[in-house]
Structure formats: structure tokens, C-alpha cells
Design a protein around this nucleic acid. Structure first.
Lengths: 211, 211
DNA sequence: AAGTCATGTGACTCTATAGTCATATTTTAA
DNA sequence: TTAAAATATGACTATAGAGTCACATGACTT
């Protein structure tokens, strides 16, 4: 958590620092990112930096915090009463929200992805691990619920299915953006349709053939 | 490519160096890995290191080379006449080989995964990118072929399908190993069955319902 | 005007890095 | 035995990192 001094700063200066930090962490992992560069870029002094933040990690965690807040704004609407809506519709909407976030906030996405990548890093455990678990649990509950309601095949392994969907949801972004995180290669709707289709006819209880 | 001096070394010494390098690169990304530590660990002098290798990258690429060779030994058998065998059987066998490699050679896997993660790194482009493309092309060809033979639904998007399978194949290892890369959490056969099942009933042209 | 508290500063410490080079040792050849 | 070629060495260079600290400046209070 940044110190009070940081929050007392005029908005303009605060934004300059965040901007510089985003730039640095966008292109570098936590360890490789340089506080010196952030300081230079934002035009504050070394001393000031440590008046605002405990250390490098403090600043980094603040950025992640901002990212989580931003992402929640996208995801929340899709999560209203998820147990009463059609399973595939919920999954669809969540992925759609995720993709929109990816397109609108490429820098946040980039920083987030970088963090997710190094699963061995201390920060991964500190920040991501628990959130990942919570997200996975949400998927698990959705799958279980949909199975109970007869929307999905009864012979599915709940955990395996939830994990597959969870991973596919994480990967759909890379699918869609070519890894550059800045522009969409294909139309969101089209991608989601293909994904849902592939998923559904492996999961959905189906009466006859379908194509 | 290591220098001649390296290959002239007695096998024991060469192995000591490789061993130390594996240890270091297993736990650290290319940038974070320390040549100093490798030197210490293997008991050679700084000067000698640079008699054996051009630089850090040279050593690293050599390790990757060893990894590729090791992995090929696993994968090759599954790739014999892939166009004449059942599509799902080929995919199954390839994934099985990949999983076995993961269990037998956890250090190689770890180093490889680490490299795959940082898609922005120069080394990624230098080493992985082209191989990934080639691997993806292989999947694409398999899918196309299986569609032509009527094994798969005719309305599939070849690229999307190939990419999904490709990604699922990469992720199956994380599925199976809990991210620790050292022990399998579940039985390989079981995991593969679930994966193939989930995949098949979204792809395979099916006459009736199935469960 | 004097004093107090929050904020700003950059030179400095300590640590670590990759890579170099002059010199020493060992091996091979004549 | 001698000369030359290959290999070994570690102190050293140059660079960069995160974080500290004694001091300076500004603002607000009494």
C-alpha cells in the first residue's frame, strides 16, 4: 500500500508516476523493471519515490490493485445471478468481458499476463495464486450447477471440466490478439462463437447430431 | 554453439558444467540466471567459461538444444505416418509422449516452460517462435487431413481448431502436474481420456447422443 | 517572525552482474 | 629438451541495481 504522502500528491503528479510505472512494468518483469527508470521518466527524485512507496513491490502491488479494479468493472455485469442463466451464456459473457478488457486496457493486460507467467515467483504466490483459486472455484460451482440442472452431460468430471474452461478462457485472449495485446485480429463475436461451439458439443447433453 | 574447447573436455567435467547450468536455468529466467553461480557450482574459473562458450546465451541455447533432442526422442514414435492413423489416436499419442517427457525430464520441462512464458523476450523469438509455428502447422495439417477424411465435423474452422488443440496440448502438462513438474497428480491415462473425450465430442462428427 | 512538520533531493552504500585480459600452467609436437 | 599450441585462472572493468540518509526547501501554525 502506497504511503499517505503519495495520496496527498496533486493528481497530475500521481498520474505521472503511475504512467511511468505502467510503462516500465509493461515491458519488464517485476525483477527486471527498474525503479531508477520510473523515477527518471516521471521526473521525481529517488528520495521522493521512497516517500511515496515502501519499496518497488509496494508500487507494483498498487498497479495490480488498479488492474483488478479495472477488470472487475468489466466482469461484474456478466456475473449477475450466474446460476439462473444459461450456462453457456454466462461463460460467453464472461469471456466477452475479458476480451473487451483486453482490447481496452492492453497495458494492464500485459502486466497481468507477465505476472501470471512466472508461476515460480514469490509475487505470483502472493498475488495471483489465491485469486486464481477463487476464480477456479467460481467455474467449478458453475459447472456443478449446470450439471445438476441437466444442462451438461452427467458423466463429466467437474474439476477437469472447470479447469479446461478456465484455461481456455485465459488463453482466448492470446488467441484473439496474436499476443500483441493491442489489436484484435478477428471479430470478438466470431471467436466467442467458435469457442462456445467447440466447448458446447463436448459438454452439452445433445440429443442428435449437430452440424 | 559451444566452442571446440568445450567438446574437447573430459566427459565428467562437461557434465558437471551442464548439471550446474541446468540447476541455475531451472530456477531462473535467462536474464536472472547468473553465470557466476554456474561457474561456482561447477568449479571452473570465469576465464574457462568463456573458453567454452561465446557468452551466456551460447550456453543457454546449448541447453535448449539438448532439451529439443530429448523431447524429440519421445515425440517421434507418435508421429509415424500420422495421416494414416485415426486422428484422435495420433493426438492422444502425442500428448501421451509429451506427458511422459514432462515426468521423466522435469528440469528440461521447467527450462522450456520458462522460455515459452516470456513471449516478449528476444530469445523467445530467436528460439521458440519458429518451432511453435512449425508445431502449429503440423496440427493444422492433421486437422485438415482428418476433416477431408470425414473424421471431423465439416463446419470447423481449421485454424481455430488446430490452435485450440495446440494450446490444450501445451496446457495438459500443467493440468497433470500441478505446476511443480515433478510428480503426476493423476494417472496419465485418465487425464488423456478426459481430454480426448472433451475434445472429440466437440469435433467428431457424431450420429447420436453420447453418454 | 519563529518554530514545526511534511515533503523533496541526489550523492552515496552495498551488492551483483557479464564479460575481458595478462599471465600461468599444462599438453602436444618436433 | 625445447618450442609452440591449447587451456586455465582470477583480479579487474564497466555497468546497473535497490534502498538509505543527511540535508534542503516549502507550507502551515502559533
Amino acid at each position: 500500500m502506497p504511503k499517505d504522502t503519495f495520496y496527498n500528491l496533486p493528481q497530475e503528479k500521481r498520474e505521472r508516476i503511475i504512467e511511468a510505472a505502467l510503462m516500465e512494468f509493461e515491458d519488464n518483469s517485476f525483477d527486471q523493471a527498474s525503479t531508477n527508470k520510473i523515477i527518471e521518466q516521471s521526473g521525481i527524485s529517488k528520495g521522493s519515490f521512497y516517500q511515496y512507496f515502501e519499496d518497488k513491490k509496494d508500487l507494483y502491488k498498487h498497479l495490480i490493485q488498479l488492474m483488478v479494479e479495472a477488470k472487475l468493472k468489466y466482469i461484474t455485469p456478466a456475473m449477475q445471478n450466474p446460476f439462473n442463466h444459461d450456462f453457456f451464456e454466462v461463460i460467453h459473457d464472461m469471456n466477452e468481458a475479458g476480451l473487451k478488457f483486453a482490447v481496452d486496457q492492453p497495458r494492464f493486460l500485459k502486466i497481468g499476463s507477465r505476472l501470471m507467467q512466472d508461476k515460480n515467483h514469490v509475487l505470483y504466490r502472493e498475488i495471483i495464486a489465491e485469486n486464481q483459486d477463487r476464480a477456479f472455484e467460481a467455474y467449478r460451482a458453475l459447472v456443478k450447477n449446470a450439471m445438476d440442472r441437466g444442462e451438461l452431460r452427467q458423466d463429466l468430471d467437474v474439476d477437469f471440466t472447470a479447469r479446461t474452461i478456465f484455461i481456455m478462457s485465459s488463453e482466448i485472449v492470446t488467441f484473439a490478439t496474436n499476443g500483441s495485446f493491442e489489436t484484435l485480429t478477428e471479430d470478438i463475436t466470431e471467436i466467442l462463437d467458435k469457442l462456445m461451439n467447440l466447448l458446447a458439443y463436448g459438454i452439452k447433453k445433445t440429443e442428435g447430431k449437430n452440424d
